[in-house]
């Protein structure tokens, strides 16, 4: 459904992505992992179209999207949840979701109430300004805002960053729930054990290129890859996950 081929991206004179290749199959959760600055967020931004590729090709459902404006990519059925969440702070929770529903050609009349119900806390806070929500609630809001567009692919950038363990579980449950909707997810996640728990396939990104790709078993078998590209501390986390 999504195919990225030899994607190169420059920020000014800095060469950030050096030919990234990756694929996301229908209904799959694919994880993009790697250290800070490896190019994970840039990869997501270039897929949605907020960053333009210098060269390479991005295909979504057999159509080239790397030449499209972000709003056109979004309307094709790609949703983007950025790392820094970015709810519309001066809009209410309900308005945040409604504006996304109105911008999407795939949403329908029940969309807004279904999206609010996806995380029950959002229903309670529907009339509250999004800027006044806690970090965890904002994260749930932006996931719901992405879902209301009824996308076929969600680009999810570090949804659990800085959240308390209870909230991490809510977000994880949310991600698992989308599986039943047949959605594909490209997930950037620093929390390796969470990634291993939900992911079907893994790409390890390092300094702008794909250093490793494989299933969770294949990744767990490569302590060297984990140590080199994710950090020595992550090896223990991976070993725990293997047990």
């Amino acid at each position: 459904m999504l195919k990225v081929s030899s994607l190169h991206v420059h920020y000014g004179s800095a060469h950030v992505l050096h030919g990234v290749d990756l694929e996301v199959g229908a209904g799959k959760i694919v994880c993009l992992i790697g250290r800070n600055g490896a190019g994970k967020s840039t990869t997501l931004k270039s897929i949605i179209g907020l960053v333009s590729a210098t060269s390479g090709e991005i295909l979504f459902e057999e159509q080239r999207i790397d030449t499209m404006a972000a709003h056109q990519v979004a309307r094709m059925g790609v949703a983007y949840v950025p790392e820094d969440r970015r709810p519309f702070g001066s809009l209410s929770v309900e308005e945040n979701i409604r504006v996304a529903a109105q911008a999407s050609p795939h949403s329908d009349a029940n969309g807004v109430s279904e999206a609010l119900a996806f995380f029950p806390v959002l229903e309670e806070r529907a009339r509250q300004l999004a800027g006044s929500l806690s970090g965890g609630e904002q994260q749930m809001l932006v996931i719901a805002r992405a879902l209301v567009a009824r996308p076929r692919l969600i680009l999810l950038d570090e949804p659990t960053e800085g959240l308390a363990p209870g909230l991490v579980r809510s977000i994880r449950d949310g991600i698992m729930k989308t599986r039943t909707h047949g959605l594909s997810i490209l997930l950037v996640e620093q929390n390796l054990s969470l990634a291993l728990e939900v992911g079907d396939y893994f790409y390890v990104l390092s300094r702008g290129f794909v250093a490793f790709e494989g299933t969770s078993e294949e990744l767990l078998a490569r302590e060297d890859v984990i140590a080199e590209h994710l950090g020595v501390g992550r090896v223990k986390e991976a070993l725990r996950a293997r047990e």
Binding site: I48, P82, F88, G89
Partner: peptide, 14 residues
């Protein structure tokens, strides 16, 4: 109002 808050995010939503 959404664009006033965050132009880029509004664009990314379609």
């Amino acid at each position: 109002r959404a664009i006033t808050d965050d132009n880029e995010m509004a664009e990314a939503l379609g």
